[in-house]
Design a protein around this nucleic acid. Sequence first.
DNA 1: GCACGTACTGAACGCTCATTCAGATAGCCT
DNA 2: AGGCTATCTGAATGAGCGTTCAGTACGTGC
Lengths: 208, 208
Amino acid sequence: MAKGTLSSSGSLSAKAPEERRERILRATVDVVRTRGFAGARVSDIAEAAGTSQGLVLYHFRSLAGALDAALTLLEDEFYDDLARDLQEQVGPVERLRHMADLGAGHGPAVGDWRLWLELWVRALHDPDARETRESLDRRWRAALREVIAEGAAAGDFDPIDIDSAVIRLASLMDGLAIQLALEDADMTTQRLADLWWDAAVLELRMPR
Amino acid sequence: MAKGTLSSSGSLSAKAPEERRERILRATVDVVRTRGFAGARVSDIAEAAGTSQGLVLYHFRSLAGALDAALTLLEDEFYDDLARDLQEQVGPVERLRHMADLGAGHGPAVGDWRLWLELWVRALHDPDARETRESLDRRWRAALREVIAEGAAAGDFDPIDIDSAVIRLASLMDGLAIQLALEDADMTTQRLADLWWDAAVLELRMPR
DNA sequence: GCACGTACTGAACGCTCATTCAGATAGCCT
DNA sequence: AGGCTATCTGAATGAGCGTTCAGTACGTGC
């Protein structure tokens, strides 16, 4: 009897609740990725998570609640991914180079441009989404600015105006990414990374 | 149709049908602009057009039909606006300068970036929209390329690689426009035009 | 005049979907 | 054991919305 007490012995779902919740969140992100915010149904999420519709509504209070939770999950992961990824690189040039690749689509949250597009449009109509995307954008730009400032201080870059350089390079990434997300015939991850890098070379007046 | 006779005397709605249809189309665009594709309801359109729901479905066969029609209206107007606007300008430099302003939001169809965002996301899921946006993009980029080529031939510009310059400048415009559409605190039409123009100066190596 | 097609309306129909709810199951506490 | 709560399910509910439809008004051709 004493039995561990703890989290149950060998029940069907072990310490299920948290894990289940997590699964549903992941499923929500997946559904948004494929069906879009507008096309996401509770039944899609339930099916993707392998649970009942009821449970989705039990854990989050509504469909909107699940979507919001997915949004903040994304936000957190984006930040973690970005921070970790950049820490691995050594100098400013390496970091910037790495950012070009990040945009081209690595990591689970960064570079998932379909999701980004969806977020932008949702931000047009939903205040929560607006805040999330603003926060994401701020973070991304702050990281970019930091790398550039670091490089400028080290003499690797010589931008005419840091503020403008940051905005332009961040915007260019977004613009290029649209074509990637929409599967434009002549846009690949490689091409995106190259185009962006060349722009950075120009913009930051990097010595050859 | 030629037949004179024209439309009757002074009935309530004069030669209404065509005018009515047009009004509904405009209303559809308006609704998409404010509510988005996903949020557009037949009743919204009817109300905005000052007609009954029935009539919307009578002229277009379905809600999707109305949205599609609005899409092609947009496409046509975009093209006309662009062509007319650019013809008014004299040299390549003037034309390019004017394109910066166009992006910043003039003309009824060009520069309406909220609509653009909506179109992009719709293109993720709807083949018709995908084609429309591809066509719009192609036209815009073709115009840009023409201006740049013209300027390069005249010695006003000296781009390292025209293809890359076109893609980057077009993408940058899209990226900057996102911030404008989302009403980012530090993005205005003026700033967009300036940022883009400066990038063009850099990218096309314009002599001061 | 009368039939007829076009333009148009408002009410009704039926379907999809989020949300609610009445349980079922199983651990936990006393 | 017997309640109590957290977790979970499948069916029922009901609202919202696209589409259909029966009907009105009106101009045109005969």
